[in-house]
Lab assay of single mutants.
Amino acid sequence: TKIIYHMDEEETPYLVKLPVAPERVTLADFKNVLSNRPVHAYKFFFKSMDQDFGVVKEEIFDDNAKLPCFNGRVVSWL
């Protein structure tokens, strides 16, 4: 699974690849690859589809939650 993530106000996003199927990747999986960053200091928002509003940034805080996936990749903002 490819996860593209944006940090603070930085213009260029980062990319990490996880050896987990897109439909199975969790917030804990993502946090594990960010071990060099203080993950407890961040809120995690993900590109998600809402039936009422369309594409939104959804906050996910449960480490066991599966991450929303679009075209085989996850897009996140920290």
Results as ranks from 00 to 15, higher is better:
R24L: 09
N32G: 13
V25G: 02
T12E: 14
Y14L: 14
D29A: 06
V25R: 02
Q51L: 09
K43D: 03
G72R: 03
S76M: 03
N36M: 10
A28N: 10
W77S: 01
P68M: 07
L34D: 01
S35H: 11
K17C: 13
L67Q: 03
K57I: 12
Y42L: 09
L27H: 04
G54Q: 15
K17N: 14
L78Q: 02
L67D: 01
C69P: 01
K57F: 15
V33P: 04
V75S: 01
V25C: 08
F30T: 00
M7T: 08
N71E: 14
L67E: 00
D52G: 13
V55R: 06
T26D: 00
E59H: 10
D29L: 05
L15V: 15
P68F: 00
M49L: 10
V33F: 07
K17S: 14
D63M: 04
V16I: 14
Y14E: 08
L78C: 08
F53Y: 08
L67T: 01
W77V: 05
K66P: 10
F70C: 10
V20T: 08
S76Q: 00
E58K: 15
A28R: 13
H40Q: 13
V20D: 01
F46C: 03
L15G: 06
P38E: 13
K47I: 07
V74P: 03
R37N: 05
V33S: 14
K66L: 12
V16F: 01
N36A: 12
D52F: 07
H6F: 13
V20R: 02
V33H: 10
A21P: 13
P22D: 02
R37Y: 12
T1P: 00
V33G: 13
F53R: 15
E11S: 09
N71Y: 04
H40A: 10
H40K: 11
K47Y: 06
T1F: 01
F70S: 08
P13I: 06
F61M: 12
V25T: 02
L78E: 05
V39A: 08
G72K: 02
E59M: 05
F46E: 01
L78P: 01
N71P: 02
V39I: 14
L18S: 05
V16R: 01
F61S: 13
W77C: 00
